[in-house]
Write a protein that binds this DNA or RNA. Structure first.
Lengths: 248, 248
DNA sequence: CGCAGAATTGATACATCTCAAGCTGGGTGG
DNA sequence: CCACCCAGCTTGAGATGTATCAATTCTGCG
């Protein structure tokens, strides 16, 4: 519950790597100061569960670094990932006492947690947090709807290509590389996690990744490094509009 | 563009049937008054398109009555419904100039539209609208995530049972009937629309509906009226937790 | 009455799942 | 230092659920 002393994390919001993208992005210095009073850091190991669906949840949080997943499991064990949490993404819901989904770290994760009650009060008194949260939630809803198209209508091959391009895009967003020509990145997910994301079995994921590889759409360096020699070629395989993604 | 004079719709927000559930739910009388100045009603026929994805959208709106769908279509014609819009649901996104999805009326629909710019300004100046919109968006995101589980992991039969129970629940919410024992309602969707919702073909929908009918889980009166003799039995077929849906 | 859209039903094809057997690479302990 | 181990991954063969293609049959309505 207490931040690990060894954790190399900014205590000062001004130095925070996600300062301008997270739920606090719009805050003025004085608002930031009040947030600092209710925040604390928590770290998680790969594979560690942050919270189980149904558990009491007394905080909300921003992912500072690492990758976590939001998922849902049926009684018989079938599971579906419903959110991929990357740095700056928000976890939890103000006003809700219990978690609605399982949250799991897939890489080492650091979260900036805010005690829920004070956070809710802060939201009521300062509009900037609520405004930013609305914007982020609307973005997530759009992403969820894209994801629904993927789950409901795309073929296994299109699903894999879509996932790779989504991850590539989000990595590029950070490193600011242009989205054309050659591109490479680390895949933070296991085959099983990819399967849970895409509504497939891990065997089908493996087969389709192999197929894309043998056709030269992607190359693999080790198990996790993905090289995309021609990003446009990968986009062709996603089934999306060629000029797609221009909506603002 | 102009409200049909014949339309039996409250001009006065105080008499509006969705007054306490829509985006305006939290507004004070003076805020309501300012909303009234920028609102106008529009009616749509069944099958009529409200807006195409990519089109310029100069309004946001609340569904007052009827049922509409939000959907996405791929180049080759595959389509996936990504939202089912019932009375009080919100359409459009403040700050976004172009529609991201197709919106279509499936029954006669009346919408309460607000000019986008003035609505955005109103949001900036009065917190109640933004607060309510955040709450509604978070609810929609939760629903979208349930839907992702359905699309990714449920069988055709479970999908049908889930859709029926979702519609039954939303009807009950309005008519305040208890969710147990016998229950009946009108199905506002064609087989094709159901298929688009569920990520299936209309033939598979038809077969599974027939199967549930021949096993006595549901009865059909005419093409649209559905009778559920035992709601618990239907819930069993959804694959969801038996005690499910208690999250707040 | 007769038409058109909606729904049902049938036969077959095929994508993905399931079950099962190996493979690979990195870490560990004898 | 090497044999072993294990999680993650790949590959294969066969089963199966859903899609596809193709007739019919309903149903509401002009």
């Amino acid at each position: 519950m207490v931040p690990a002393a060894s954790n190399p994390v900014a205590k000062d919001c001004a130095d925070c790597p996600i300062r301008h993208r997270a739920v606090c992005a719009r805050c003025e210095p004085d608002e930031l100061h009040r947030l600092e009073e209710i925040k604390y850091y928590r770290s998680f190991e790969p594979g560690q569960t942050v919270i189980w669906s149904g558990d009491r949840m007394d905080f909300v949080a921003s992912v500072v670094s690492g990758v976590a997943t939001l998922s849902q499991t049926m009684e018989d064990g079938r599971t579906q990932m419903v959110g991929l949490l990357l740095p700056s993404d928000f976890v939890g819901r103000p006003g809700r006492e219990r978690a609605a989904f399982d949250v799991k770290a897939v890489t080492p994760v650091v979260m900036c947690c805010f005690r829920r009650r004070p956070f809710e009060e802060l939201m009521a008194s300062t509009p900037h947090i609520g405004q930013r949260l609305l914007e982020m939630t609307l973005d997530e809803l759009d992403a969820a709807r894209e994801w629904m198209l993927l789950l409901g209508r795309k073929t296994a091959r299109e699903k894999i290509a879509s996932l790779l391009s989504i991850i590539a895009r989000r990595e590029a967003q950070v490193s600011a590389g242009p989205m054309r020509g050659r591109f490479e990145f680390d895949l933070p997910l296991t085959r099983e996690a990819m399967a849970d994301y895409l509504g497939l079995t891990l065997e089908t994921v493996s087969r389709q990744v192999s197929a894309l590889k043998s056709e030269g759409v992607i190359q693999l360096e080790g198990k996790r490094r993905v090289v995309v020699p021609d990003f446009a070629r990968l986009l062709d395989e996603t089934g999306d509009d060629s000029d797609g993604g221009f909506l603002v």
